[in-house]
Structures are given as structure tokens and as C-alpha cells.
Nucleic acid binder design. Structure first.
Lengths: 264, 264
DNA sequence: TTAACCGTTCGCATATCACGAACACTGTTC
DNA sequence: GAACAGTGTTCGTGATATGCGAACGGTTAA
């Protein structure tokens, strides 16, 4: 049950991945700049860039190398193959229409939260929040979707994730105590939805519900988020939870329907 | 002026790229399946997958490996960094509203056409066309955007691209003769826009205009496409060309404005 | 029970990659 | 106008990381 005997990995591939990430972070770079950034020699860095370019993963304009549109292609392909997007995008759009707020569809990968799809409702606010959610990947313990997912994991995996990443404090409201988090997750399981009360960003609240497979594995979670001023009272405690859980259930139904027809 | 002395390239990186592409094509795969597909040994294939997984580029569910959401992140990052998207997305949306048809924003990379952004107008039709445009990358010589771009390239680059890829026939209307293409490109330059008259897909016409930098380099092209039945007469010969050129000009202005302010 | 599949691990031989030094080119500086 | 400090690029070499095959552990089917 333990997948820990770290398998043999290829340094050359690892370095290639770091080159790609660095190009993204820097928004394109020259050979020398990249070499410094990665701690590689200029000549080696050049070889990596030349290879990625030959494979059309990277383009060169003038003397700077950038990630190519191949990544956009791969990204949309990944999204379209993802169960949550295939069976959830329409429902997410509907929910954004209904609530008028920001709606997110997230999945967990490698113990971190990844954005699958997001839609801004008519009254959706929060340029800052929007930008924050643009992050590569983020921790699970301070978002409504993250907590909704964590609450569904078997304790073994939960603990391994917490061990690996810890409970980083993002705002003063972030839960940083392990026992408090366990209590919180218990409440999430009881209520069927999770809440983010300014734990990720000051002034922003969110309500999230997990999307669970028919075999009980979590696929991810749906959330609605908005300003604290608006997210209050009956809306925050009843209407939104109901709406979010409803959407999650619709998506679950779509997923299960499709997997049922697939096995005919 | 010749960049041809093919530089030294890293086989390990090339193979990693092929693994990624194969995972995309197959929509996820097991070790043995991938090894067969790539002509590598099982053990080597495993090492590649293990490395890509460690770098969080790949996820493993059960016994099948799939591309991770990292690619979606990288893809949207690439799009948001792309000049055409930054300064063109709004205009493209406006054009889709105005015409009610399918609108595309494309760029050339490595001599092929890459989709940057697309918006479906209200009456937009063509599921097939839509799917076709989902392609990884396509040739330049049979699309309106592709021809608009080709018409702006210096003859050296143009010839190198044609030498590399040839004039593949996609439909019976595709231009497969070099001289005829040169004539066509000359007309494109004279009129300021390019036409695709069922050269890519039967029954689909399109009008495209290039987006050119202030130093004269092509950034890409805009197009409007739709069914032959509707794309006819005054609309096809005057209104749409005017609209498409207008949009291209707006995007050019945005791009130049931004590069002007940047150099202060 | 056996057999035929998986995915994974490991040792070994060899091909591959990292480095530094040199090159070509550009723009700057004095 | 010449020397210089920056680029990006090429190439030879030695150290080592990688590819392979064989074997292992597991699951499913016969």
C-alpha cells in the first residue's frame, strides 16, 4: 500500500521540465538568463532549448525563447478529456448564471488543488481573487473546494498530504492546526459542503461541495465565491450551500451516467 | 541568414516530448501500451513516466498514466502572454457578436498554423469545422488566416516553409500548385485580406486578415468562417472583408499602443 | 494450480550528456 | 574606429546517466 520507494528518474527529463517551468515563470528568456536561473551551463541550457524547439514545444523570437502554442493545445486537450469538464462545464455555467458569482471547478492532483474550469457570473467580483486562482497549483486546506476534497479522502492519503505540504498560513483565518482541521473536515462530511471564510483571501468567502464518483472516489469539487459583504445570512448558510450541492450532484449524475453507458 | 546547421539535441528530451504527445493522442495509457507505441523498452518507458509524474506533469490513476492539469495551467499562461490574445481577445469577441459567425485568432509557429483563440457567434455553425480546428497544428496554405500570414512573409521564409511541408491537398479546392499559390498571395497582398473557398473543408468559406506589427512582422491573423450558403454576394465580398480588416487593424493599434508605452 | 498478463526494480555496458573553451556576432564605449 | 562586454552558438572530451533485458511482485483468467 506504500508507493514510497522513489523510483528511478531521469535527470535529463527533470531538467527539461525545469526549463519549461522557468520559461513560463519568466515569460520567455534568453540562454544566459535561463542558464543562471537554473544553475546550468550556457551550453547545456542551449541544448535543452534547441531540443524543445525542434519538438515545437518552444519558439524562438529574436534571441528569446518562449513556450509555444503547443502547450495551449495540450492544455485544452487535457481539459476536454477531464471528466469534471466533460460532464460539468454546462452545469457550472448554469450555476454562474443562477448565482451571478464566481464559480470554480477544481480537482486534486499530487496533493494540490488545480483549476479545471471557472466562470464569472454577472455580479462576480474580485480581480485579486481571480488572479490568485490563476496560480499553478495551491494548497487544499484553505479553500472551500480543497476542504471538500480533503474531507472525502481516506485518512492515509489525507495524512500523507498534510505531512508533505503542512498547513501553510495564507491569512489570519487560515486553519493551521491539524486537530482543528480534522474537526472542520468532520463538519464538512456532516453538512455535505465546505466553507472558506476568508481563509485564503481577506474579504472573500466561498462555499464548495465535492463531486464524488459512484465508487466513492472524489473527482474534485465545485465552489461559488464572492465578497464577504454579500456572502452572509441565509444566502451564505442555506441558499448557496444548497445550490452548490445541487450542482455537484448533477455533475455526479452526468459522470455516472456516462460511465454506465460506457460499460455496456 | 541560414539557421540550418541542425544544433545538438538531447535524445532524452526528445523522447520525453514524444511520451507527452503519445499520452495526449492516446488519452492516457499504461506502461506497456506506451512502450509499444514508442518503440522503447518497458523499463525505459517507466522511467520517463515516473520522472514526468514526479515533476507533476503527469498523473497516474490506477495503472494508466495521463497528462496532468499542469498542462492546462501552462496553456492558459501561454495564451495570456501572447500578444494576439492580450490585445485581441476583446476585439475578437466583438467581431463574433457583430457577425454572429465563428471567429478565429491564429498565429504561425514553426511554419504551421496554431489556434490562439476562437469565439462562436450566435449563428455560428459547423461542428465539423470546429473539430477540425481543434487540431494540434495545421498547414498554412489552405486557410484564410494561413494565407493571410503567408502573404506577409519574406520570400525566403515562405519558400522554406513550402519546401518543408509541401502543398498538401485537403479538399478538391485546395491550391496545390506553387505558382497558383504565389498568384493568390499576390492578390491577398493587393486586397489586404485572404479568402478560403472550401479549400480546407467542403462547404465552408472564410475571410481572413493579417495582424501586422509596427516593424512589419506578422503576428498572426483574424478570420470569420461559416457555411458557403450564407457566405455569398455582398456579405462575402465586401462586408466581411471590411469587418475582418477592421478588427485586424484594431488589434494592430492595441499592440502598437502597448509596445509604445512599454518603451517609455 | 497454472499461466499470461500487467507494472515495477535492478545491474551492467555503452552511448549520452554536461562542461568549458572557443567561436561569431552585436552594440557599446572611449 | 578599435577594443570590449555582452549576447547566442559550436565542439571535443571525460564522467555518468540512461537503455536494455531479466527477474520480481501482483492481479486476473483459465
Amino acid at each position: 500500500m506504500n508507493d514510497d520507494h522513489s523510483p528511478r528518474t531521469l535527470e535529463t527529463v527533470t531538467r527539461a521540465c525545469r526549463v519549461i517551468e522557468a520559461l513560463e515563470e519568466l515569460g520567455g528568456a534568453g540562454v544566459t538568463e535561463l542558464a543562471d536561473h537554473l544553475g546550468l551551463s550556457k551550453s547545456s541550457t542551449h541544448s535543452y532549448l534547441a531540443t524543445l524547439r525542434e519538438q515545437q514545444f518552444v519558439v524562438k523570437s529574436g534571441d528569446t525563447y518562449e513556450l509555444g502554442l503547443e502547450f495551449l493545445y495540450l492544455g485544452t486537450a487535457v481539459r476536454h478529456n477531464h471528466d469534471l469538464y466533460r460532464h460539468g462545464s454546462e452545469e457550472i455555467e448554469r450555476l454562474a448564471d443562477e448565482t451571478g458569482e464566481y464559480v470554480h471547478l477544481m480537482a486534486e492532483q499530487h496533493g494540490l488543488e488545480r483549476n479545471v474550469y471557472k466562470v464569472a457570473g454577472e455580479n462576480a467580483v474580485g480581480a485579486e481573487y481571480h488572479a490568485r486562482k490563476q496560480q499553478r497549483a495551491d494548497y487544499l486546506h484553505f479553500s472551500s473546494t480543497g476542504k471538500a476534497v480533503l474531507a472525502q479522502l481516506e485518512t492515509g492519503r489525507l495524512e500523507r498530504i498534510l505531512d508533505q505540504y503542512g498547513l501553510v498560513e495564507r491569512t489570519e483565518h487560515t486553519i493551521t492546526d491539524r486537530e482543528r482541521l480534522y474537526d472542520e473536515l468532520q463538519r464538512v462530511r456532516e453538512r455535505g459542503y465546505a466553507v472558506n471564510d476568508e481563509e485564503e483571501i481577506q474579504g472573500i468567502r466561498a462555499v464548495g461541495a465535492p463531486v464524488v464518483d459512484s465508487d466513492g472516489t472524489v473527482l474534485g469539487a465545485v465552489s461559488v465565491s464572492g465578497p464577504k459583504s454579500r456572502f452572509d445570512g441565509e444566502l451564505f448558510n442555506e441558499e448557496l450551500p444548497e445550490a452548490v450541492i445541487g450542482s455537484a450532484n448533477v455533475i455526479e449524475a452526468n459522470v455516472n451516467m456516462s460511465s454506465a453507458t460506457r460499460s455496456l
